[in-house]
Write a protein that binds this DNA or RNA. Structure first.
Lengths: 122, 122
DNA sequence: ACCTGACATCGACGGTCGTCGATGTCCTAC
DNA sequence: GTAGGACATCGACGACCGTCGATGTCAGGT
């Protein structure tokens, strides 16, 4: 509706000097706020890593829906401190829950948090 | 159901030396391959940035579904080369299309590519 | 032809990230 | 209590990323 806004008007090149004075005059102002964007980006950064994506999908593919570090370490082929670091990032992002059972640490998905990630893109 | 699988068996510490020999014996092997995970992570890295999220949502919020750099630069409050860099990242990820119309460069969403991102999390 | 304006490209700088070995903590078994 | 195994934490190092000013390119207007 009202498509005549598509062509830029290019008015007021110097007038009203105090404001931003967007060159095309449309004044894009919709979309996410800075706070919303940073919150979503923080969640996405936790997931934008091939190792962490493999950890999440491996835990999901488990029969019991959980896995411990000793299972995940040989899967990704990295050192144990590195795997522990990635799991910590996922826990701090709310995507995994850690449960210490005996000497082992078991990790389980948080489906609601996964839905939050998918909801960013509708 | 069947909770005795929770306790690891810890067998074959040295037997079958060629294979991975997971300590807990479950042998997590489902989930994404390394190539699949890297492809998804590359796409997610393009989106895991607050500035780029704001650029995408601002373009989506436009009436015409497109915007030029001169509209987006004052929105995010960064320098023009920085905004141009972020837009290039989004174009190279397939999330945006660039069309040079007159002296301006117009950017439009690629909805199918957005769906690819959402599909990573089902 | 010249200038101006819109945008891209080019180093360069500082900060963050992924990875590792070394070390610490906690639990269990003997 | 002592030993060993599972996991977390701690620097440290190299690589990548976001940001900028400076510069280049191209289209339009005078």
């Amino acid at each position: 509706m009202t498509e005549e806004v598509a062509v830029p008007v290019r008015e007021l090149p110097l007038a009203t000097a105090t404001t931003a004075a967007a060159c095309c005059g449309i004044g894009v102002e919709g979309g996410l706020t800075r706070e919303q964007a940073e919150a979503s980006a923080t969640l996405l950064k936790a997931v934008a890593d091939p190792v962490r994506l493999r950890l999440l999908s491996a835990i999901r593919a488990t029969d019991a829906g959980e896995a411990c570090v000793c299972d995940l370490t040989p899967l990704v082929g990295l050192s144990q401190p590195t795997v522990s670091h990635h799991l910590k990032v996922l826990v701090e992002a709310g995507l995994l829950e850690r449960e210490k059972r005996g000497p082992w640490a078991w990790f389980r998905l948080v489906p609601a948090r996964l839905d939050d990630v998918a909801a960013i893109f509708r």
